[in-house]
Amino acid sequence: MKPSSFIKAGLFLTVSGLVAGCASAPDYSGDTDSRWADFKSWTKITEGRTGTGDPTGLVSGVHKGREGYRDVYVNDVGLATNQGTAPYKYPVGSVIVKEQFDDLAAFKAQKPTDLTIMVKLRDSATPDAKNWGWAAGYDGKLEETNAFCSGCHSVAAKDDFVFTNEDFLKKFH
């Protein structure tokens, strides 16, 4: 490896560490979209399951990566579908919220650093990522088109773009 490659790699790791070190717990007290404002009162579908790892091979650096931990909540609209069996077809109004934790210590202390949200906006005859909206953060703005989110979630198209359903949880957790 060239010396300049080592310098670039070192700079990347340093910047990554600084960004990770600046993360702070989400503030769930402010104004937010009413569709997920009370998500902490919903069913935590990962309750009693260790929410870590990368069983799909897709997590890589997102959702706190392979070493991160995650809790996933679903509202009452999507609960029966989520806890059912395939084929999964979520009704319009389903909301899924994922809290992400940096590591086991943060998970045990229930101190998340990130939050991501999926909202089923419309229905169609076949699964379509355009049926979902995506938001990053408790006070994030819902985006009806998010190529970054829908790109990874397209792998779960047969399950209506949702990874964390009952079949997934039984298989991987």
Rank of each mutant, 00 (worst) to 15 (best):
A20V: 11
D123P: 00
K98N: 02
T46L: 08
I7H: 11
F39E: 00
A23R: 15
K64T: 15
P91V: 09
G61H: 15
G84I: 07
L104Y: 12
L18D: 04
G30Y: 07
P112W: 03
S4Y: 15
A129V: 12
P87K: 02
W132T: 07
Y88L: 10
F163K: 01
V59Y: 13
S60K: 13
A86K: 12
H173T: 15
V72T: 09
Q100H: 14
T126K: 14
F39Y: 14
L104F: 13
Y90N: 00
L169S: 11
P3C: 01
G133Y: 06
S60Y: 13
A105L: 09
T126N: 08
I45D: 00
F107Y: 11
D27N: 15
L104M: 10
Y88F: 13
F172C: 01
N131L: 06
Y69P: 01
L169P: 02
T126Y: 07
K111R: 07
Y90E: 03
K8E: 09
L121A: 14
V119T: 08
I96V: 13
T43W: 04
G48S: 04
D54G: 11
K44N: 07
W42A: 00
T116C: 04
D71P: 00
L18E: 07
K111M: 07
G61F: 15
L18V: 14
C22Q: 11
H173R: 15
P55M: 02
S124P: 03
L115C: 02
V95T: 15
Y138T: 04
A106G: 10
H63M: 14
T164L: 07
L115G: 01
G133H: 04
